[in-house]
Simulated scan of single mutants.
Amino acid sequence: MDGSLTVESREIPTPAPDEVLVRVAAVGVCGSDTHYLRHGRIGDHVVTGPIVLGHEASGRVVAVGSAVGGDRIGERVSIEPQTPDPTSRESRRGDYNLCPSMRFYGTPPIDGALAEFVTIGASFAHPVPEHVSDEAAALMEPLSVAIASIRKAGVGMGESILITGAGPIGLLCAQVARAAGLTRIIVVEPGVQRRSAALRFGATEVAVSVADSDAGQTAVDAFVDASGAPPAVLDGISAVRPGGRVVLVGMGADTMELPVSLIQNRELVLTGVFRYANTWPTAIELVATGKVDLDDLVTSHHGIADVRAGLDADRIPSSIKAVVHPGIDTVEPAARPSS
Rank of each mutant, 00 (worst) to 15 (best):
Q193T: 13
L171F: 04
V210W: 04
G202H: 06
S149P: 05
V210E: 05
R178Y: 02
M140L: 15
D214Y: 00
R195F: 06
A153H: 09
G181L: 07
Q193D: 14
A203F: 01
A148T: 11
I163C: 12
V187F: 06
I150R: 13
Q175E: 11
M157G: 14
D212G: 15
A179P: 01
V210M: 01
A215F: 06
A146M: 11
A215W: 04
L162A: 10
I186W: 07
A203K: 05
S144K: 04
A146K: 04
R200F: 02
R194E: 04
G156R: 07
A179W: 02
M157R: 14
C173L: 06
I163Y: 10
V208N: 13
R195E: 07
D214G: 15
A211N: 01
F201Q: 02
S160Y: 13
M157P: 12
S149G: 15
G156A: 15
E141Y: 00
C173V: 15
T164W: 00
V145M: 10
I161A: 12
P190W: 04
S196D: 14
M157H: 14
T204E: 09
G167P: 05
A197Y: 06
A215Y: 03
E205P: 08
P190S: 07
A207C: 03
V192W: 04
L171M: 02
L171H: 10
A166I: 05
L172G: 04
I169F: 00
E205D: 12
A211G: 10
P190G: 02
A203N: 09
S149L: 01
G165L: 03
A166M: 00
T183L: 06
A174V: 12
E205Y: 02
Q193Y: 13
V206K: 03
R184N: 03
G216E: 07
E205W: 09
R195V: 01
A174R: 11
